[in-house]
Amino acid sequence: MTSNQTDLADEYLHEVELRLSGLPLLQRRELLAALKEHIAEAREHASSEGELVEVLERLGSPEEVAAAAYQEAGTQADARTPASSAQRTGRVARHEIVVMVVGGVVALLVLVSVLLLIQGRSTGHSVPARPAPSATR
């Protein structure tokens, strides 16, 4: 193994690593270790630089490998995949539901207090929190 070959393999792994920053740490480490193992093993049979290039070509470009990693991770990091934009839509929808629920509760509270106030006035300042029997007759 020449240092040239080491450089080429290291460069390849580095190029992959650069593209994996959005993955969870352990998944990133696992993939890089697997690729390293793959290259190390292939090298036992590949002695020339040309053969190493073929090994790397069969592995696929760093872009391809990284894209597969994001896809299998079902990840939030790669905004281009349809899965992650669906997740984003889901989050937005949940956010809107929360706003609607909180708004509804606030509106209900306002309505109740206005009603109690009106009732309090019409029953001549009796206990405002209880529906006065006189008001319903």
Partner: peptide, 20 residues
């Protein structure tokens, strides 16, 4: 799997699958 031509899989994309 990489050797199955009709699957047209590049080898490096199978490791993330194994991980999942």
């Amino acid at each position: 799997l990489g050797a199955e031509r009709s699957l047209a899989t590049t080898e490096g994309t199978i490791y993330p699958l194994l991980s999942r």
